[in-house]
Write a protein that binds this DNA or RNA. Structure first.
Length: 172
DNA sequence: ACCCCGATCGTA
DNA sequence: ACGATCGGGGTT
């Protein structure tokens, strides 16, 4: 499958978040259609982990685009992001929705939530943080010709930064 | 060393 | 509405 290159991720995070809708996430033997994303970017976004500067956890968000950022939330769940924008500007897109076909049952499963996605795919901070998904053989985003319609809303699960409509929900 | 809190999810 | 569960990051 043709895959997204670094130039795709080296753009405005809002554009990347929107255009990731309908693309295919490939992880090992799994494939799924991305149905929901959120943007986190810059120093004026209080909901972003990286808004108050670089730390050991968030340094990947300051790095070059096209890398995974996987973090543990509430001590229980992992969340997958893809780093966006030029090196030095902290930004990433959170993958919140994925439509997969279960390999045992053949049934469609809508993984609606970032924790569910990582749990289903087996993505962890320990094993899958800071991976270059532009180069990796079994962790990348594939191109798709179709683009989905979408809506924007405020982001889920945050207390600050709710004024920004940076959640992108695909219509499929 | 200590404390608070969180980009969630399942159950009630 | 709430508890589970733990690492990050700021403060002492």
């Amino acid at each position: 499958m043709k895959r997204l290159r670094r130039t795709f991720f080296n753009r405005s995070t809002l554009i990347v978040a929107e255009e990731l809708l309908g693309k295919i996430l490939v992880f090992k033997n799994h494939k799924g259609i991305i149905t929901e994303t959120e943007a986190y970017m810059g120093f004026d976004d209080p909901a972003s982990h990286a808004a108050r500067g670089k730390t050991k956890r968030t340094e990947i968000m300051f790095g070059p685009p096209g890398y995974s950022y996987v973090y543990l939330i509430y001590g229980l769940y992992h969340c997958l992001n893809v780093v966006t924008e030029k090196e030095g500007f902290p930004a990433a897109v959170l993958i919140r929705g994925l439509l997969v076909q279960d390999q045992k049952t053949g049934k469609d499963i809508h993984l609606d939530g970032p924790g569910k996605i990582c749990r289903y795919l087996g993505i962890t901070t320990q094993d899958h943080n800071k991976i270059d998904i532009v180069k990796n053989e079994d962790f990348y985003v594939g191109c798709v010709k179709k683009t989905l319609g979408f809506k924007t809303t405020s982001r889920i699960g945050i207390r600050v930064g709710q004024d920004k409509l940076w959640r992108f929900v695909g219509e499929f």
